[in-house]
Design a protein around this nucleic acid. Structure first.
Lengths: 263, 263
DNA sequence: GAGTGGTCTAGACCACAGT
DNA sequence: CTGTGGTCTAGACCACTCT
């Protein structure tokens, strides 16, 4: 046995009675397992269930909540998938001892920034249908495509330029108004338009600023820039967006949380 | 109804009979749902179940495989979580029409590179215990720590330098031999040592090469570099690694697949 | 209305960890 | 040994989508 394999100290259960703290209302439209998961998550995040706490076993939990064991299991499983709980056979279920690592989700830059300080905004440089060159058609995986919608925006925070964002969109999507683009992320607009985003492939790199980059971003030519190219798919496998963006490395970095989820 | 909401064309089921193609052996140690999931995944990946194919419904599938519906559901769920299948209530289950987006997992650079072309290797510049400065102790979230193991390596592909990698490790982990580090990723060595990795927080940025960077990596000073800083936690919430790496942007970029998994 | 996945129940047996 | 989570069954009813 190596030093690394040593046991986590297990807190014995404190006076936290799930049956008293968690209430499930079968009448609500929210599924029972979701109600349990939501309230467990809240208890973990506001400290009522501190890191390292061991939960009661699934049988007792189910009995206390007057639910079946599979239902309670489903609730716990969603939190395990989020990395908030850890289960070990023969041992029990514990609150993870890490600051929460939110799973990585499809998010646009705007949504990310809105969660931080500063006021995000954007200037729309280009927003029009254009004849689709072979490159654009290939990026959207739509050979023979006649037209594409092209977007070019500058994202700002508190008025300072942060990124130049270029996008191709399929021409049959409803046209986003410049005004909408100024105040909302592209993903948010797509979702509102009924597009069900499913997955994306991203590539993150770096390069030096060209004079044009420098001019748009308020940097010096030769400054370090972060680049991100992304293809986004909906649930039917159609490409709903291709984008290539450049960020000022002096003012932005990508922050990712990874979890070793099951499956 | 917007254009974006239009229906996916549903292929009627071709002559792919799950009951004939999938065999479950209750005697094997592998769980039944895992056997089903594995064989379904294989069928999707090698083209026997092309993108867009609709699966039989869960009841029929269960009957055909002589399993219960929850078991079949569990198998399908794991593939949905991986983004390989899409389920819609009232409609059915379809193979996703996208090239597969593998979920983002904890991986070391070495593991990533091993999956691509070229022969990865590395040179170990530093591998020793050092007195822990306040910075190192803070990075490992272990105030008062006496010593840390410090690593400094150069990662190469086909002999060409690709990245400089700096790491702090807690002093109680078994010391990795230089020889092991040359041929294996750090994560792989940690797992072998019994560490159960749980989650990580990464930050990706860019900067210009200093003369020292340039010397180590064979670039010019002022060249664009990708930077990545990472803190890795095990299941007990302990920091098991802190690393800050720089990559030659001319030869490397991060590729991520994101999926909008449930929960 | 017919067919689908989404949720839920009440049991059962097994594998593994710790004593 | 005891207690835990892991797996599995055989039903049931509901909510949603499409015809």
């Amino acid at each position: 046995m190596t030093a690394a394999g040593r046991l986590p100290r297990v807190n014995s259960s404190p006076a936290w009675d799930p049956a008293r703290e968690i209430v499930v209302e079968p009448a609500r439209p929210e599924p029972l397992y979701a109600q349990v998961a939501r309230q467990l998550q809240a208890a973990i995040e506001d400290g009522r269930l501190p890191a390292g706490t061991r939960l009661a076993n699934e049988i007792d939990l189910a009995a206390g909540l007057r639910l079946s064991r599979p239902t309670v299991r489903q609730a716990i499983q969603t939190l395990v998938n989020q990395g908030l709980l850890v289960r070990k056979r023969g041992v029990g279920t514990q609150v993870v001892r890490t600051k929460v690592a939110r799973p990585l989700r499809l998010s646009s830059l705007f949504d990310d920034l809105a969660g931080l300080g500063g006021t995000p905004g954007s200037a729309v440089l280009v927003n029009r249908l254009e004849p689709a060159g072979p490159d654009a058609a290939a990026r959207l995986e739509c050979p023979g495509l006649g037209e594409v919608r092209r977007l070019r925006r500058i994202r700002t925070v508190d008025g300072e330029p942060l990124a130049v964002m270029n996008n191709y969109l399929p021409p049959d999507l409803p046209a986003p108004a410049d005004e909408e683009l100024r105040g909302h992320g592209l993903y948010q607009l797509l979702r509102t338009a009924g597009v069900r985003l499913h997955s994306a492939q991203q590539s993150i790199g770096a390069r030096l600023a060209t004079p044009e980059d420098a001019d748009l971003l308020g940097e010096q030519p030769g400054a370090a820039l972060l680049t991100m190219a992304r293809t986004t798919y909906d649930e039917t496998g159609r490409v709903v967006e291709y984008g290539w963006h450049v960020y000022r490395a002096s003012r932005y970095s990508f922050n990712l949380s990874l979890t070793n989820g099951p499956a």
